[in-house]
Computed example of a mutant assay.
Amino acid sequence: MLPRLALTAGEPAGIGPELLVRLAATPLAANFVAIADRDLLQRAAARCSVKLDLIDDDGGQIDTRAPGSMRVRHIPLAVEEIPGRPDPHNARHVLATLTEAAEGCRGRRYAAVVTAPLQKSSINDAGIPFSGHTEFFAAQSHADVVMMLASPELRVALATTHLPLINVSAAITPASLERTLRIVHDELRAKFGFAEPRIAVLGLNPHAGENGHLGREEIDTIIPVLEKLRAQGMRLSGPLPADTAFVPAQRQHYDAVLAMYHDQALPVLKSEAFDRTVNLTLGLPFIRTSVDHGTALDLAGSGKADPSSLIAAAHMALDLVARRAMSSSQGHS
């Protein structure tokens, strides 16, 4: 039977609905279940000149899927979308799709969830505190999580996510850093199959603090945590200066990088493999992957948005589902 992948369309006025339609048009071997407004998807299909066959989801299994077909769990919009112009009236619709995806994954109705980009500001404009998919799914699941972006060549996890730069240093505590490294280590083993993961840890300051001359976070926080976890058997290098950590000679020595803040390492990853990079959330009780880009409101409605990152996210979700199934079968053999 094909794995049931939940798909959320994200911001209705963004490119997400068009990306879902483009993904459905591929021959990828998955039972796609779009958690969205069915009319929104049909309008997106018309803009993309794609023939879309939407089938109401009955929760059942299928062993084949024709390109262009997709199951749908209909969650209606509050107001019809205007491409490029997010409407806060649809904020609760967006959150309802995410809630259904999370609950469905925890209830084993879906094997994984793949998310299209949403517009955080539109949800906040509706008076609902919201800082992103990662934080929302963490709260839904009562889980400590870590954001990771991965391409075929590089994996980057984040010690902090969507924070103003001025708040980053205070957010990196010994407890939070240790918790993050344990999650990354455990998930590299469980999800990616590394028996002894090698993790490169970046410093927070330029030149990793230069022995305290450019900041003391490395001396006071990062180095003590690394020494503690190394003593417990983790293979950790660093803290490394971020400006040299990604050169080819360094990369062969690690399986993943832990960056201290959002923009410290992600520009490297996205400049190399923007169309092949996937956002995934480590630490959840289910598999969640996503695109590595935003809603591209300037492209919405044109039918020209590139679906490569969403297709890569679906491929990674399927790979992780297969690895989980293999691990489970080995554990019961």
Rank of each mutant, 00 (worst) to 15 (best):
G212S: 05
H207Q: 11
P224Q: 11
R235V: 15
P206A: 13
L240H: 10
A245P: 09
D220W: 02
E227P: 00
E196N: 14
V225Y: 03
N211V: 00
A195Q: 15
V225P: 04
A245D: 07
E218I: 02
H213V: 11
T221Q: 01
H213M: 11
E227K: 07
G193I: 04
N211Q: 13
P197N: 14
E218Q: 05
N211P: 00
I199D: 05
Q232C: 08
L240K: 08
N211R: 14
L240C: 10
E196W: 08
A208N: 11
I222L: 03
L204E: 01
V225M: 07
R198K: 15
Q232S: 13
T244C: 10
F194D: 02
R216K: 14
A245K: 07
R230T: 13
N211E: 14
V184P: 07
L188Q: 08
V201R: 04
L236W: 00
G203K: 03
L236E: 00
G212W: 02
L229A: 09
V201E: 01
P224M: 10
R235Y: 02
P224C: 03
E217W: 03
P206W: 14
L214Q: 04
G193V: 06
G215Y: 03
D220H: 03
K191V: 12
V225R: 07
V225Q: 12
G215C: 03
T221A: 06
L202Y: 00
E218C: 03
R189W: 01
Q232R: 12
A195P: 06
L226P: 11
L229N: 04
R216Y: 08
G233E: 08
L226Q: 05
R198H: 12
I222F: 01
L236H: 01
G212P: 02
L214H: 05
P206H: 12
I219G: 00
E187P: 00
P206N: 12
A190E: 15
P241H: 02
